[in-house]
Amino acid sequence: MTTPLASREDTALLETRGLTKHFPIRRGLLGRTVGQVRAVDGVDLRIRSGRTVALVGESGCGKSTLGRCLLRVYEPTSGEIRYHRPDGGVVDLAALGERALKPYRSEIRLIFQDPFASLNPRMTLLQIVGEPLRVNLGLSAAETEERVADLLRRVGLRPEYLHRYPNAFSGGQRQRVGIARALALAPRLVVADEAVSALDVSIRAQILNLLKDIQEESDLTYLFISHDLGVVEYMADEVSVMYVGRVVETGDTDDLYGRPLHPYTEALLSAVPDPDPSRRRRERIVLKGEVADPSRIPAGCPFHPRCFYAEDRCRTEIPALREIRPGRTAACHFAGELDLKGVEES
């Protein structure tokens, strides 16, 4: 169960086992812990080398927290982050100290969502993109400048921009700078946390194509975190759907989109807008209620208060993520028995 996709023989780059992140809720003068926000609750994820794995879900479902836990921006509460080194060894990133973690910081990189907040406005592009190079590789000023100019070219920016400050650039261009910074140390895994969500629709496609081109050039692996199912369909090889801190369904993108196994996935897919007006919209499933509060997760299946197929069993028994078909897992008692609609092939 811990490695649901192990039937494939591809090599894993990173696996999580029971990864959990609880944020304590503190109250009062003494800061007593009165509760836990269970942002990520026992996630098993497997990211295979060279693939793009998407993490989708509504906002607040813990997908960004999960991404940030992988990078140890947040300290995971429990669980393992098993990283497969290029030499074949496996390390648990969750157990490493800050110093021991440093070499892996250059192999796993993050692209931020907000291109305005993620670039220090007081530094030039040379300083921003050059920082990881200077700090980690100790390059000289001239070498750094050359490498940064190269990186800017790779992400489609002119090298003449080196000495400019980020405020001179548009959101799309800034995001390119952020991508250049992520690529500076030749990483193996890039976590793209809503990397295109803050961008204009017209710019989005350019950035997505850029990410795809870079992946081809340098054999990158992406963990693509997004709430936009259209973007995910375009980008991802595999998809993991999250709901209040748990993975509820995984599978290859085409299969998951075509034949969802979890009612939540079905509802999400029904909300994807169809760009073709000649096709009559399929019926949209409007979920009742709100996303569950991660500090008060309902008993049983966390999704049951909103599920149209819920039965008594769902109210008491937590469904485990189990393999339904080869390569497909879902956390639903009735997965495979329900007749759920996906997105039609276009």
Binding site: R122, G156, R164, S170, G172, D213
Partner: peptide, 28 residues
């Protein structure tokens, strides 16, 4: 193809060599 992207962006004036070069203190 990538090189041509975002030529429509109005904010980055490619013809003004000074654009975006002002240091933070100058902006203050």
């Amino acid at each position: 193809m990538l090189m041509q992207s975002e030529h429509t962006s109005p904010q980055a004036d490619d013809f003004d060599p000074e654009a975006g070069r002002a240091s933070p203190w100058r902006l203050v």
